[in-house]
Amino acid sequence: MPPNHMARKRPKLAVWKFSSCDGCQLSLLDCEDELLAVADAVEIAYFLEATRVAIQGPYDVSLVEGSIGTPHDAERIRRIRARSKVLITIGACATAGGIQALRNFRDVDGFIRAVYARPDFIDTLATSTAIRDHVTVDFELHGCPINKAQLLEVLNAFLNGRRPVVPPHSQCIECKLHGTVCVMVARGVPCLGPVTQAGCGNLCPRFERGCYGCFGPKETPNTAALAKQLTALGWGDAEIANAFRSFNADAEEFRREGDAHERTE
């Protein structure tokens, strides 16, 4: 420990949860080799899943997991933003509304009123939306779940005043970098790799499975061209719409392509 340790003012880190599965904040606890170093470099000021300690803001860095699904949460994220110098969203729920944003595609007006046994017991919004739709976000980390190495890179970058190195390129590039044989070209397996942002660590194609898009759209994806290829491989509109409507269903480019293939029955 450096002698100036006590004198050094450590930046305050807060981790916030909204509607989510907890998997992205768990990724921080899954940094088994780095966790104690992180806890030494920052002051963990708020991280309910890990500690009862709750230190007042302002916070130097806030990590936000989860989507906005209740009126109360829409208020809460504004208060958190006001107390955070840097606000980083982590994961598909926070960056795109998550799997629960599938409800945005339903006829929600009647749905919400009609579906509960006791609607008065539950307070919910008709939609599940990204944090960006409510407050200014300084950086969005993709993934369902996020990649823990990317999380450490983003934290490191913001704590040291530099831009994070998180490539916006596609999963296809990732396969080439890893030398993974293309599942779509070699085996005719439908794959969202061409339009999905890299970062998972080249997972699905390595297991001879097509990418299912859990890292959301890459920068400027050509989803229409991919849809044409998926059709050539034998997929109908229903399968294509279904593929785009998963963990990042409400990310703009995926939403548009999914909507374009919606069956009108």
Binding site: Q100, V115, T124, C144, Y212, S246
Partner: peptide, 23 residues
Amino acid sequence: PPRFFEALLVGRPYGDAPDITSR
């Protein structure tokens, strides 16, 4: 907040269930 998984699964192919419910 509730996330309505059981409702969201309706209409999707059987093969989606493991990946979606894992979330």
